[in-house]
């Protein structure tokens, strides 16, 4: 049941237009529902979705494939946080 609730929350986030992401520990990440790239530097990236923003902090950050709302971030991600 917990798994189903988690899946439902993920789906709801996607429908609400928030940025969804998958991050590997000490590595890069994959972000979906990205509408805007508000900031981009080697230690900080700010992504904007339909609703809200997502802040990514880390080291030697760069962008991988960016296409149709999907953005891959390379480098070493240390923190990910939401901003309204």
């Amino acid at each position: 049941m917990n798994v189903l609730r988690e899946i439902a929350e993920q789906v709801r986030d996607g429908e609400n237009g928030r940025v969804r992401y998958t991050v590997s520990d000490g590595g890069g990440g994959y972000f979906q529902n990205v509408r805007r790239i508000l900031e981009f530097s080697p230690d900080r990236i700010l992504l904007g979705g339909k609703k809200g923003k997502l802040r990514i902090e880390g080291e030697e950050l760069s962008l991988g494939k960016c296409f149709k709302g999907d953005v891959a971030v390379r480098g070493r991600i240390l923190r990910v946080g939401r901003e309204e």
């Binding site: 981009f40 962008l63 494939k65 960016c66």
Partner: peptide, 8 residues
């Protein structure tokens, strides 16, 4: 246009 990579 698909962006393959970007770096500062």
């Amino acid at each position: 246009i698909g962006v393959l990579s970007a770096r500062r």
